[in-house]
Amino acid sequence: MTEHATRHTPPEGPPGDGDVLLVTDLSRRFGDLIAVDGVSFRVGRGETYGLLGPNGAGKTTTISMVAGLIEADAGTVTVKGHRMGPARVEPKRHIGLVPQELAIYPELTARENLTFFGRLQGMSGTTLASRVEDVLDVIGLSDRAKDPTKEFSGGMKRRLNIGIGLLHEPELLILDEPTVGVDPQSRNSILESVESLSTAGMAVLYTTHYMEEAERLCDRIGIIDSGLLQAEGTRDELIRLTGDVDHIRLDGSGDTVAAEAALLALPAVEQVDRERHTLHLAVHDAPTAIAEIVTEATSAGMRLNDVQITRPNLESVFLRLTGKALRD
């Protein structure tokens, strides 16, 4: 554990112009439990940063401090240059929070929910009314705007939950496991929305324990476990950090011995194991090297029947960093 924790270092220097969120050495404990332990990261404009970790890893506590819901025991959170805290007002103008729970009022209609939170954000008049209609359109609830949300399906409530976070067009959108308990169709719709927001220049902080979501959405990922940020970087950087390589399996017939020797000579190939008519290759960057590998094996006299590529993913990174599976 200690070995992996040292892989991560806090962001250095003052916040850059592009930094919307800067988190430095953030810590929080509840009694004897250290929920968050010295977490640091930064999120820039137009960037989606993912906090990936299992349940109880410290993601929601980190989000709670970033959104100014609870006080940090140590460390700082800065949003657009403003120090965040429960009693701070200015930095909260720049954030939109989408809590993990369905944070909507069941007795109010979709429009009333949006209008209520819009007013608390300081919006009013035609600006608010117009923005409410825009968001209703974006989340696909315009035709159900007058219905009490207690009559909504789970997916509709999730979409409204996100819509409220977007209403005032925040510079930093914080989403805490927004797809938990959502059907595949609504889940895809939510992921598409997040992608389009990021493209539009919004900074997004996204927590999840779904590896696929982190891989699809996030420009950079912080792997968190037991309150510690174990590592962070792009997907490829994280995989390289663990030293994992891609694996290619070649099934066929012919001269596999000659093929083994030929393939070992290629720079991209690190290791070849032969098992009767099958070759197992450890390769750097399989998608790039595959064409050359197939050509070389064929030239050496191997007739290929099947080729399989296996690349390491964040699940295997997490396993290697923490010693446990992501869904443990």
């Binding site: 819901l69 909260k92 944070a103």
Partner: peptide
């Protein structure tokens, strides 16, 4: 607090 709206209220730009 149970249904999550309190967290959202506390994230609004106003005094707690």
């Amino acid at each position: 607090r149970d249904q999550g709206t309190l967290a959202r209220l506390r994230s609004m730009p106003m005094r707690p």
